[in-house]
Design a protein around this nucleic acid. Structure first.
Length: 271
DNA sequence: AATCGTTCCTGATAGC
DNA sequence: TGCTATCAGGAACGAT
């Protein structure tokens, strides 16, 4: 499941390859992946334009076109972009293909079709991006910010980390890993966290996410980079997916719990 | 305002 | 063997 490090890795892979390339053709093979536009509008808005910028905001990918249009993609669970220097036959789960004038081709694929592509006209505010919290690797994310955001809220710290309007980019894998790293129980209500806890939380978030970006993300099942390569951070996972196995820190058993319909992995002794 | 539950979707796996 | 049931989860949306 692509979270910040996975999306960042895909964006970094695509950026040098497609920036300033001119789009010759766009084909939507599965109209359901388009969020706020129809096939004919989508295809004609892209043709003849070049890609000015490839960016990431939280778990969203942003393609800025030279006509000012912006193509926003959220990969959700199994979505991905794959770059080819020559045209390829679309696979079973390829929903959009984008051809460039130099013969290269971009495939958007998603076997579960949770991911969405949305197209925004120039100068329009993109609400979904506006309401995101700060980037955890950026300057606006601090212990004080997180403490202020928590206030007297009663949700668990795991739920807080997953709230994209509080912090943008953390998903289920890294939430568990971050909490293990700073030895905070995922069940702690945020109004019970101490100032020192917020400090450790922020430090661990930066540390884990930076390391995962360096590793090109975590390939737990489906995720691949834009070149089709696996990430490397699955080798570094301390708790996620390790229920019943030995905690690397204390030797006790790692546990699995469910919070908000999602699995949480943690060590009850260390956290 | 904050929180909770439901929906979308399909491949892998378990159980009979 | 072949079938059905269950599970994985991010964000949008509706309900409380």
């Amino acid at each position: 499941m692509p979270e910040l490090p996975e999306v960042e890795s895909i964006v970094r892979g695509l950026r040098p390859r497609i920036t300033d390339k001119v789009i010759e053709k766009a084909d939507v093979l599965e109209p359901r992946v388009l969020q706020n536009t129809i096939v004919s509008e989508f295809e004609s808005a892209l043709v003849g334009q070049s890609v000015s910028k490839v960016k990431r905001r939280g778990k969203f990918m942003v393609f800025v076109l030279n006509n000012g249009f912006r193509l926003i993609t959220h990969l959700r669970m199994t979505g991905n972009y794959r770059y080819f220097s020559y045209k390829q036959i679309p696979g079973k789960h390829t929903h959009v293909t984008i051809d460039f004038e130099d013969g290269a081709q971009l495939h958007y694929k998603d076997q579960r079709r949770f991911g969405r592509l949305a197209l925004y006209k120039p100068d329009i505010k993109i609400e979904t991006l506006e309401k995101l919290g700060p980037e955890p690797l950026g300057p606006d994310f601090s212990p004080r910010y997180l403490q202020n955001k928590s206030g007297q809220r009663k949700i668990s710290v795991k739920q807080l980390l997953l709230d994209q309007s509080v912090i943008a980019g953390i998903g289920n894998i890294y939430a568990s890993e971050i909490l293990f790293d700073c030895a905070v129980s995922p069940f702690t209500p945020v109004n019970q966290l101490k100032t020192a806890d917020f400090k450790r939380l922020v430090e661990s978030a930066r540390k884990i996410l930076n390391k995962a970006v360096k590793c090109l993300g975590t390939t737990f099942s489906d995720y691949r980079t834009s070149d089709g390569e696996k990430g490397g951070f699955q080798e570094c996972l301390q708790v996620y997916g390790r229920a019943g196995r030995t905690c690397f820190r204390c030797g006790g058993p790692v546990k699995r719990a469910v919070q908000g319909q999602r699995a949480t992995f943690y060590c009850p002794r260390c956290q």
